[in-house]
Amino acid sequence: MPSLPQSDIEARLSELEHKLLARDKTIDALKRRLAQQDEGMRNSPFALLEQNISLANVVARKTGELEQERQALQKTLGELRQTQTQLLQSQKMESIGQLAAGIAHEINTPTQYVADNMSFIDMATTSLLALADRSVAVIAALRAGDSDPALLADFDATLRRTKLDYLRRQIPDALAQSKEGLEHIARIVSAMKAFSHPSGVDKVAVDIREVIATTVTVARSEWKYVAEIETQVDDDLPDLPCRRDLIGQALLNLVVNAAHAIAETLSEGVRDKGLIRITATRFGDRHIDLSVADDGPGIPPDIRERIFEPFFTTKPVGKGTGQGLAMVYTTVVDQHGGEILCESDVGRGTRFTMRLPLCIDNDEAASCR
């Protein structure tokens, strides 16, 4: 089945569900008509029998047709749900593609200084080995009772060229910096692997701290030049039953939106950097609130009712698709039975909260609202 936009899939799902409901109503109407005929024709047994047989045939035929339609609709619903899952995965990979240049830069920077440090250590090693060779020659000569002044002069010259005190200070720093750079690269690769790996259709218990850490790492190239990030997670926060990749994608969308909003204020020369605050707290006994707050320009009141509409965006053409917040809404509300809340104050910032139920199945999730 060809890929469809999220809005088309949702509309098609709604249409199919209405058709199923209409078929059920048709069957009920036929049954009621049969019952009414039975009541109205009590004085004519033959006519009653004839009509009953006729209606029974109609009901049987319609029931068979409706059952076939129901099966076809159920199959189509299953295919649409599968397509929806594939679409969500495609949107996630599209987000990674949009972040690819920044992620490549994040990896290239530590790679470059690791390479520079390796070149320095290679040069230092050559100098130290040369000094070691001269030292061995001098010691061998002394043991043989030969104190050749030329040999000592060569050793002194090599020692001066080696700049031993300088190497003592710089080599440990170069090694420590290289180790830090390699660890940074490993974190990025690990975060990308975790973020891009699709989770199953079933919800599993996830440590929300790990989801936050992974998302912050993946989105680093989007926020590091425009904002500082603070994270705060309750110490007693339980694991969240969810589809990890969807929640990670939704959180990524909110963080990237927050960074873009702050960038609008920086372009006006008001300040150097803004602040993005990510928090995860308990809400009552049955929910977790996962929030992203920024100190950007806020959302004007006249468009707040439309921010979750598919394809609605205030960004220039080529800068935004209008799918980010629509995907967040679908993930939180449709996929997890939660709520998405928005608080915004023009000139002071915006806070989005994903209120997610601590429940496994959909029936329990509905009761947790």
Rank of each mutant, 00 (worst) to 15 (best):
V270D: 11
T109P: 00
V201E: 15
L80E: 01
I288A: 03
F312A: 05
D363S: 15
L167T: 03
K179Y: 05
R306C: 00
L254R: 03
V333T: 10
I103P: 00
K179F: 05
A104S: 10
V59Y: 15
E183Q: 13
L66C: 05
E183N: 12
V218K: 01
I303Y: 07
E230M: 07
I262Q: 03
H18I: 14
H260G: 06
A60Y: 15
S95W: 01
A141Q: 06
R61N: 11
I188M: 07
M192V: 08
H260E: 15
F308L: 14
F155T: 06
A258S: 13
T83G: 02
Y166A: 07
L21Y: 01
T353A: 10
A115Y: 14
E210M: 12
D154T: 08
A261M: 05
T350A: 06
D289A: 15
D334Q: 10
T214D: 08
S90K: 00
I288S: 03
K203P: 08
K75I: 08
I208G: 01
D235T: 08
C368R: 09
F195Y: 04
L164P: 05
Q51S: 14
L4W: 01
Q249C: 02
G102W: 02
V201S: 13
A72C: 02
F283Y: 07
Q170R: 11
R306Q: 12
P310Y: 13
V332Q: 01
L151I: 06
L77T: 10
L87Y: 01
V332H: 01
A219T: 15
V317S: 08
S367C: 06
Q51K: 12
P149S: 10
T350S: 11
R277I: 10
L341A: 05
S127H: 11
T76C: 06
K319M: 12
Q82T: 13
Q112T: 15
L275C: 05
Q51G: 10
T314C: 03
E67D: 15
R306D: 06
D146Y: 05
L34W: 09
D133K: 14
T279G: 02
I208N: 01
L129S: 11
G318T: 09
T158G: 04
R12Y: 04
A326T: 02
I107E: 06
D234W: 03
A263S: 12
D334G: 09
R282F: 00
K224L: 12
E69P: 03
A258E: 02
K193G: 02
S196W: 03
D24L: 13
E17K: 12
N57C: 13
D239V: 08
G248A: 14
T281S: 14
D294S: 08
D202P: 00
S135F: 12
V218Y: 02
T162I: 05
G284L: 07
E106L: 10
G40S: 14
